[in-house]
Amino acid sequence: MLAPVGMAMALIVTAASIYSFSPRHVPPLQETRIPVDRMQLTTIERSKAGLVIAGELGSILVSADEGQSWKPATISHDRQALITRIVFADPARGLALGHEGWILRTEDGGLTWKEVNFDESNGEPLMSARQLPSGDWLAVGAFGRVLRSTDDGRSWQADSLPGLTDWHLNDIASSADGQQWMIVGEAGTALSSSDGGQSWQAIEPFYNGSLYGAAHLGGDRWVAYGMRGNVFFSADRGASWQQAKVPAPISIYGHAVLPDGELLLVGQGGIVLSSRDGGTNLNIVRREGRASLTDIVVTGDGRWMLSSDGGLQVRTPASANQTQNDGAA
């Protein structure tokens, strides 16, 4: 009996070995979904690569299909630092700005990024940047920090502007022709330039709180926005300002100017505000959720792609009258 049993066991072991090493079809792993709808996102822009968003832990994501799917960009250094803003000078060239003076540069619309500045000893964030008509880049950030690049963003040096203190600088914006410029920040800090950023003048304070952004609306008209629903408009290149009528005391963090001149502002409480009169009056056109909206891009089919501290939000436009009526009901 022992011989047949031994032979049977040997055959079993042999068969098991053959099976273990034989080629087998392995089902493909399920594609990992990027939780773009749950991430902290601070900025969204459009480039030749598609839509580009960024935010928590140095994440930069790109969508080539109008937000239907996303893939991570290639970044030369993983710093795990919050990215505060992405800006593009043209469809290919752009910068990503973050904490610790972090600056990344792209030449392919945001698919790949190369680190060009990082300062571990200085943890203050950079908040905004733009390329001036001269070709220089100017970046601004916390505690009045200003950096300049004279080689298309490849290297950076500390710079200063007249009239600045150590208040945070939150945004630098320009007119479409690149001649008018505005810098806004904490404690009502505001500077203007009418010669393409060659010279800057401090604007007499018209608000004592933080201004988070500015938008040029054509001609000599500007809008600046900030804390607790404070929005101001100027019809003389920033020489004088009037306060706009805003229906909700929410902080406003981002904007878009549509081809027909409509101004959209986004902020706390999932609120989107609209103005069709140059920022004089604003109406609530969308109020949804509790997330703070940080930036907005409008797609070709009219959808609003909104970055927020609660992830990417996708909304369809609604008229101010419809939203107000819905709220009254």
Rank of each mutant, 00 (worst) to 15 (best):
M1Q: 08
M1G: 14
L2A: 12
A16S: 02
S20C: 07
S22I: 01
S22T: 03
H25T: 15
P28W: 10
L29N: 04
E31S: 14
E31V: 04
M39Y: 03
Q40D: 14
L51R: 00
G55L: 05
L57R: 11
L57I: 02
L57N: 08
S63D: 12
S69E: 03
S69Y: 04
K71L: 09
A73D: 06
R79I: 10
Q80G: 11
L82S: 12
A92D: 14
L104F: 13
R105N: 06
L111I: 11
K114W: 05
E115T: 07
V116N: 01
D119H: 13
D119R: 15
G135W: 11
G135R: 08
W137E: 05
V140K: 10
F143H: 11
F143W: 06
T150V: 08
T150D: 08
D151N: 15
Q157W: 01
L161A: 05
D171H: 08
S174W: 09
S174A: 14
S175V: 11
D177V: 08
M182S: 13
I183M: 04
E186Q: 13
E186V: 05
A187R: 15
S193D: 07
D195I: 00
G197M: 01
W200K: 03
A202N: 01
A202W: 02
Y212K: 02
H216M: 11
L217E: 14
L217D: 12
D220E: 15
G226N: 04
G226W: 01
R228G: 04
R228K: 12
G229Y: 07
S234P: 01
S234F: 00
G238K: 03
Q243I: 00
P247R: 01
P247C: 00
I252N: 05
Y253A: 00
H255Y: 13
A256H: 15
A256F: 09
P259N: 13
D260L: 10
E262A: 14
L265S: 00
G267W: 00
Q268S: 13
V272Q: 10
T280I: 14
T280A: 14
N281L: 09
V285M: 01
R287W: 08
S292M: 11
D295N: 14
L306F: 14
S307W: 11
G310T: 03
Q313L: 12
V314G: 09
P317M: 02
A318G: 09
T323R: 10
G327V: 05
A328Q: 13
